[in-house]
Design a protein around this nucleic acid. Structure first.
Lengths: 263, 263
DNA sequence: CCATCTTTGTGCACGCGTTCACAAAGACAT
DNA sequence: ATGTCTTTGTGAACGCGTGCACAAAGATGG
């Protein structure tokens, strides 16, 4: 999951483990799809398949919420949708502000998955005066000067940062000072926030790098044993983009000079 | 982290734990920043702070790569940048295709964080014939019909799916059939792929839902003990957006009717 | 060359998360 | 009412990840 997660002290909130909380939205999505198809009940096995997890894990996850299933039958879809929604806090409406209306910010503003989950885009904020007033996704962009006023007036407690990395910490500080207590950060920076403020981050390039690691490993396996031409014919040659720097030489007179001579 | 991660069998690849692999990009980002400031060496403590992790964790992570530090001094920045880049497979260039050029796809095409890490956008693909030929981020969009040809001609092994949920599985199948072995999925769907294909997912709304959970918990604490007006004055009233469905009644003659009567 | 000081690398213990496997619970048929 | 069959809910075992705490290693100064 591209889901970068921030260093939370792993405090299981009200008895529900973090790992379970992170999966509840998955279950909710699968259940919503079933609900739209008017499926009345679903077994843990079916739902687990639809959500892409193990059925035992799903049952244990649900057991933290309570005993909402019926043995021999399964789970009532509508009832479970409501229980999970309530647990996640989606039975109320959450106004959010998006700061940084570049390509990504605009994409987020247009993203339909927010409104359907109870998240309402209360305002779009950008530092560029030329953007001010310009409508994006039907909402006029407002200038950063208005940030504090927007947040207090609308009672916003969740902020989304989609600015360049250089501006992120500054924006974050202003959001927190204005009363924001949850931040979703798309900027490739580590944000420092006071206690009581939650930060979750999404870094698009990190996910690709993790994929590259495994991809390299798959390609590397081929030079190993049976030399079976797996994949196809489209293996790229190994093209280094940087010379390996020499390992740092010992500061004092090195006792062992082997291995540091250039090839 | 919004990092959604897919149910990998937790196979630690070549001895390096998955959790460590997921953090290597973080270290790399912090090290790159130091490198640009021409900082020669860095201690585990400093680097850990910059990356937002524990210093003991960082040292243990690096120990999986080898002994690249110097006791009493720290780590050589340039050397470590190279070693991590090599481990992640970023010393070669990875062509990627982006399928689905809507708001999000366009944002990804314009995202600068890819090119700087060795990822090259080889092609943009969309199913809308009206998009064909239109340049996005300087690259002309190509039609889905060309998908297989693009992938084989360019030797692409990493694909990014930014289509609507309904089209994702179909696109995924075609990508896999054409030779793609790593997929980054932005569509809110569970993709099923054959063994040997890696999938990582990024779901924007999931991250917000997790934040909402904790936000609700913070608000709920206030009604508890000392009624200290934490936060500020902007607490929203609890506004239910759906009536709680009644729990499923027993099919046969219910022995116990208490608790199912409407309020 | 020796003493001191800094910082790495890691053994160890602990806690969380995952999975197995099964007893208990309820539906359904007879 | 009773038996059978399906599916839940959970106790227990295991493995991974995290953090502590310290010994070893090397730099630095005299």
């Amino acid at each position: 999951m591209a889901t970068g997660r921030t260093h939370r002290p792993a405090t299981r909130s009200r008895g529900i483990p973090e790992a379970t909380v992170a999966r509840l939205p998955l279950y909710l999505r699968a259940l919503t799809a079933l609900s739209e198809r008017s499926v009345p009940t679903v077994s843990s096995e079916e739902l687990a398949t639809a959500a892409g997890v193990n059925s035992a894990k799903l049952r244990k996850d649900f057991s933290y919420l309570g005993s909402y299933g019926t043995r021999g039958v399964g789970y009532d879809v509508e009832y479970l949708v409501y229980q999970i929604s309530r647990e996640l806090g989606l039975t109320q409406d959450w106004p959010v502000v998006i700061v940084g209306i570049g390509n990504l910010g605009a994409a987020l503003a247009n993203y339909g998955g927010f409104a359907s989950r109870g998240f309402r885009v209360a305002a779009l904020i950008d530092a560029d005066p030329a953007m001010a007033g310009k409508p994006v996704a039907g909402i006029p962009v407002q200038h950063t000067d208005e940030l504090e006023k927007i947040i207090t007036d609308n009672g916003v407690s969740i902020g989304v940062i989609a600015t360049p990395a250089g501006a992120a910490q500054q924006v974050c500080d202003r959001l927190v000072a204005a009363g924001i207590t949850s931040i979703l950060n798309f900027a490739p920076t580590v944000l420092s926030v006071p206690d009581g403020v939650d930060v979750r981050k999404v870094d698009l390039s990190i996910e690709l790098q993790i994929l590259a690691f495994h991809e390299q490993r798959k390609a590397g396996e081929e030079v190993g044993a049976p030399r079976r031409p797996r994949g196809r014919f489209h293996r790229r040659p190994w093209r280094p983009i940087a010379r390996p720097p020499a390992p740092p030489a010992p500061t004092a007179a090195g006792k062992d000079l082997t291995g540091t001579c250039p090839p």
